[in-house]
């Protein structure tokens, strides 16, 4: 349970950064941290004590493998999530750079004031 709570705290740190920081880069960082936290949480759910990676080795029987391997489903989905998050980060950074070029600042309150 404590482990889940730690993942939640990591998420909370990211959320804190997104809500409280005025710097666009900090906000992007907060989002990245939140993504990390969610990924970690999913993997934690799929964890089995004294389990092995879901990769079949030569010589192990399938029944033994089923009983000892980690849950592969969250892992498969987390892989896609990680790569998508990279694409999304690239998009966000591109947006931030564009905004910086337009307004000369990363501060979102300034960007709001200089709308148009």
């Amino acid at each position: 349970m404590l482990t889940y709570l730690l993942a939640f705290i990591l998420f909370a740190v990211g959320l804190y950064s997104v809500i409280n920081k005025r710097n666009l880069i900090k906000i992007i960082m907060g989002i990245i941290i939140m993504e990390h936290a969610v990924n970690a949480f999913l993997i934690l759910i799929g964890y089995r004590i004294s389990g092995k990676a879901p990769i079949l080795e030569k010589g192990t029987s399938v029944t033994e493998f089923v009983n000892s391997a980690m849950d592969p489903l969250p892992q498969a989905l987390v892989i896609t999530s990680i790569v998508i998050s990279l694409g999304v980060v690239a998009l966000m950074v591109a947006l931030a750079v564009r905004l910086y070029q337009h307004y000369g600042t990363f501060d979102i309150t300034e960007i709001r004031k200089l709308r148009g």
Partner: peptide, 13 residues
């Protein structure tokens, strides 16, 4: 709704 991203996020969450 003052146009500040953070405030919207507080409401949303």
């Amino acid at each position: 709704h003052n146009g500040l991203l953070s405030r919207y996020l507080v409401w949303v969450f």
